[in-house]
Write a protein that binds this DNA or RNA. Structure first.
Lengths: 211, 211
DNA sequence: TAGATTGTTAATCGATTAACAATC
DNA sequence: TAGATTGTTAATCGATTAACAATC
């Protein structure tokens, strides 16, 4: 019953592709249009939809608007998601300033840092002392956190987050985190992405074959 | 013969874990120590090593230093990797300022942007006009690029990169890119990571079961 | 109707895990 | 030797793809 990560990531891709198709004036799509637009196979599209009980019309495909509503509902886009960031270095600043989250209903409501020089309560998105994370998360009922602190601090911060009600973390620190059973951690490791690329670029240049 | 992405990502994880173990004074590891440290199974560790012809000693495990050398060689860490960034917004600035890449042999050598206000040739990492990307990549023989431009510009930029010798791209723009057969694109979509988290947090809170 | 597309089942593919013989 | 660990093969697991009957 619980779907796998890739499947849900594909739903996000469908959603984005549908917005683009919609903007181009399309009203309906067939599974193979959407497959092209999202970079997957038509089989995968129909399988994923079937998994969530989304049905179209044989011969008439899917209504884009209706489809978007269903995907948005599955992905929890019907309400604004409040998110906090721990560690207010360059990366966190970029995330806080990024305009793209807003239109997707993702709102970074506060940052936390140990460095007093970074604190600023009057900001649009306030930067608060790390000790206040606990109370803030509890009071506001925050469920999602981003970890952008150095490796050495990540474990502690994660523990504090989980203890106070955070259920999901996007972790940019290059270290595995211990998470309670009912919580999720998604890892983003930019260094590993680049390292990975280097490997495959070298491998492909050696083999001269397609993947 | 060509290994899969997850396998190579695990090699990066082993490498990082080994550095930590090394720093703690360990000289040897067994597959199950390393598995714990990297967050995988002992079977996976031995399987991965076997895939690359890395062997240890029955009963004595693996020499950490020797292992690190081999992993670093596989991952292309024996030489500095020069990387460029297209789009010098907040995210790119954060990447350029990030200190962690250097010790891993990853060097961002230039940024490119269409906005003249961002240009700066005298910076440690210069920010140049986007039109100069082509010549720069060719002259310097750059193989790896990062795309941090808006969605609408990403396709064009990728095409320019590939045409001029870039073989691998980390793409932060929320759109699929067309890539030549002998090139690779790794996608990082922060919005989808958060969206994904929201889905699983909601799903887990409904089921109250472990994954 | 003929043609095209969905929805679902079955087949395939590949990655992960388990198991265990070899051996230090 | 007895015990523990590797290296590899086989089994399992799950995700993706293909195929096709149902049907608009």
């Amino acid at each position: 019953m619980l779907k796998n990560r890739n499947c849900i990531i594909r739903l996000s891709r469908y959603k984005n592709a549908l917005y683009r198709l919609n903007a181009l004036g399309f009203v309906r799509v067939f599974s193979d249009n959407l497959a092209d637009a999202a970079g997957v196979t038509a089989s995968a599209v129909r399988k994923d939809f079937s998994l969530f009980g989304i049905s179209g019309n044989k011969k008439a495909g899917y209504q884009i608007e209706e489809l978007l509503e269903k995907l948005n509902s599955i992905l929890g886009k019907d309400k604004v998601q409040k998110v906090i960031v721990a560690g207010c270095g360059n990366l966190a600043s970029a995330l806080i300033k990024y305009k793209g989250f807003e239109k997707e209903g993702i709102k970074i409501v506060a940052g936390f840092d140990i460095d007093p020089a970074k604190h600023n309560r009057s900001n649009n998105v306030p930067v608060l002392p790390l000790e206040e994370l606990k109370g803030f998360v509890r009071n506001q009922g925050i469920k999602i956190g981003i970890i952008a602190v150095p490796e050495a601090a990540a474990g502690q911060v994660a523990e504090t987050m989980f203890k106070n009600g955070i259920k999901g973390i996007v972790n940019f620190a290059p270290i595995r985190l211990k998470a309670p059973e009912d919580c999720v951690v998604n890892y983003v490791n930019l260094e590993h992405e680049l390292e990975n690329l280097v490997y495959f670029v070298n491998a492909l240049s050696k083999t001269k074959k397609k993947i």
